[in-house]
Computed example of a mutant assay.
Amino acid sequence: MPMADTLTMQKDELIERAKAQMQQHLTAPTWSLREKVALTCRILFAQGHDSGLAGQITARAEVPGHYYTQRLGLGFDEITASNLLLVDEDLQVLEGDGMANPANRFHSWIYRARPDVRCIVHTHPLHISALSMLERPLQVSHMDTCVLFDDIAFLARWPGVPVGNSEGEIISGVLGDKRAALLAHHGLVVACTSVEEACLLAIQCERAARLQLLAEAAGTVQPLDPELAREAHDWVLQEKRSQAGFAYHARRILRETPGGVEHPLS
């Protein structure tokens, strides 16, 4: 039997071949920015990121210095595309009813410091919050969570409720050029180039924290080979993969939204 063509190819060749195929074959619906933010709220609620009225999800709007966020008083599971607010950097509401969460102030600092960031997720998920209480950084030691390898910072000292400008300076400073940060005694912040990427990284941060706590209860977490971890990081962190992964989670939310519950795309 003749050898299949790909069985003689090097790994880097196979990676590039697969990337080209993903560009061709992975597709996702063309949701509006408002719809993607609303879907992210629902997805993260389902993934255990709910904490009452705490947490914010924002996305840069079409006009510089403006962004979309949810209305204070609504939980992530109540967000729809139509009840999102459009606010400026001072959190003044430009479109919509109600007020933004005053803790959104540090988002303005991150957006100013990071022109590449299009979406910020800040939540208090259970396992991230538990790990934050131990004042220990997140350890990335599993293939599934390598998307976070060398890409998650750690704020070791809690600065208090993040409604002031000093907290914005501190959080944006510790985040630096990374995509995420674990905030001691607080929670999680994710800052990414797209809504899809931010949503998926937030999911993986909580999964990584849960894995770490489970593993540490049984023994010592062993480190990954840095070169292989970076390879996995770059492999997963592709725009088409992010779009496809987000679409999968969105399909689940849209399929499982019960009758009588306001639809996230409405």
Rank of each mutant, 00 (worst) to 15 (best):
V163N: 01
Q24M: 09
A20K: 15
E95Q: 12
G65C: 07
D97C: 04
V87Q: 13
A28C: 11
P64C: 04
A184M: 04
R60M: 04
V163E: 09
S242M: 15
L183R: 11
Q204S: 13
S194W: 10
D144S: 12
D77R: 06
A247K: 05
L214N: 10
A184K: 07
G245C: 03
G52E: 00
L182S: 07
M143G: 06
G75V: 02
A81N: 08
T80H: 07
H263T: 10
L237M: 09
R157S: 11
A244H: 07
D234P: 01
M3K: 15
A208K: 07
L237F: 01
N101S: 05
N101E: 08
S129V: 14
H66I: 02
Q56M: 06
V190F: 06
G245M: 01
W31E: 00
G173H: 01
S141A: 13
I15G: 08
E78M: 13
A217G: 13
A181M: 12
G168L: 06
I15V: 13
L33N: 12
G48L: 00
I152K: 00
L175F: 06
G52N: 06
A156Y: 03
S129T: 15
E62P: 05
A46R: 15
A181E: 10
V93I: 10
A184F: 14
N83T: 02
E13N: 02
Q70C: 11
Q204G: 10
G259L: 15
D90N: 12
A130R: 04
Q47T: 00
G75F: 00
L134I: 04
A218V: 13
Q222M: 07
V190E: 02
H122F: 03
L44T: 03
T257N: 15
G75A: 00
G96S: 03
S194P: 07
H142C: 09
G52K: 02
V189S: 06
E95D: 05
H263V: 02
A59M: 02
R210H: 14
A81L: 11
D97Y: 12
L74N: 13
Q56S: 11
A208S: 08
A59Y: 07
Q21Y: 02
T58S: 14
E216R: 03
M1D: 11
A217F: 10
H142K: 14
L148E: 06
W158E: 11
H263C: 09
Q70D: 12
R207D: 08
N165W: 15
L183P: 10
G75D: 10
S32W: 03
L14D: 10
G52D: 05
S129L: 12
I120N: 00
